[in-house]
């Protein structure tokens, strides 16, 4: 691959990511984080970015799934502690709406991970090395969530982006961060 093409791939992926975020915000504002329609469009746009990039996920190795689940346990530890200490013991939402919500979570978190820790990580790694890939994908992960949760979420999302990037490096596969991301998001049903 030529140097120009090699360098432009992550840039084009970042542009695709930014466009998907812009679409999500335009559809979901002002309650972007609560708009299921905007979330679905976002996941669809990310899937298009993956198709355009020609990235195909390999079959997940069972050990990557296990590492991902352990990674999710760490991500959930803080919210679980808060949940137990704040007395939030009653889940306000009825269980009947869980399947639809969970499916959307899997789609959004899954496509996010395939773009960030899959296609973008691979292409960044070729240009700036693995540490640089972790840095770029962590910053991108934090930035795409700012329109949803505000700048206050940047430190936490940076840390989580690093954690997911570390899982990617440790296992050599996007399956581990994808599993961690999806599992931790799903736990949010019981933790909020």
């Amino acid at each position: 691959m030529s140097r120009a093409l090699s360098a432009s791939t992550p840039v084009l992926l970042l542009l695709g990511l930014a466009s998907a975020v812009g679409l999500r915000v335009a559809i979901g504002a002002p309650s972007v984080a609560e708009s299921q329609g905007a979330g679905l469009v976002f996941a669809g746009a990310l899937a298009l970015v993956l198709v355009a990039a020609g990235w195909r996920p390999g079959p997940p190795h069972p050990s990557s799934i296990l590492v991902g689940l352990a990674g999710a346990a760490v991500l959930v530890a803080g919210p679980l502690w808060l949940h137990l200490t704040s007395g939030l013991t009653e889940q306000a939402m009825p269980l009947t709406s869980f399947p639809g919500w969970a499916l959307l979570i899997v789609l959004i978190a899954g496509t996010e991970e395939m773009v960030l820790r899959g296609a973008l990580f691979d292409s960044c790694g070729r240009v700036v090395g693995p540490a640089g890939a972790v840095a770029v994908t962590s910053i991108a992960f934090a930035l795409i969530h700012v329109p949803l949760y505000g700048p206050a979420a940047i430190p936490l999302d940076l840390a989580v982006g690093m954690w997911l990037g570390g899982l990617r490096l440790l296992t050599g596969s996007a399956a581990a961060p994808a599993t961690a991301h999806i599992a931790a998001d799903l736990c949010g049903w019981w933790l909020l």
Binding site: A33, S97, L156, A159
Partner: peptide, 19 residues
């Protein structure tokens, strides 16, 4: 981050489950 801001935000991502 969790110790500095223990009340918010607890989770880093997700979709508000209000319908």
């Amino acid at each position: 981050v969790w110790s500095a801001a223990p009340q918010s935000p607890p989770l880093y991502d997700g979709l508000a489950n209000c319908s």
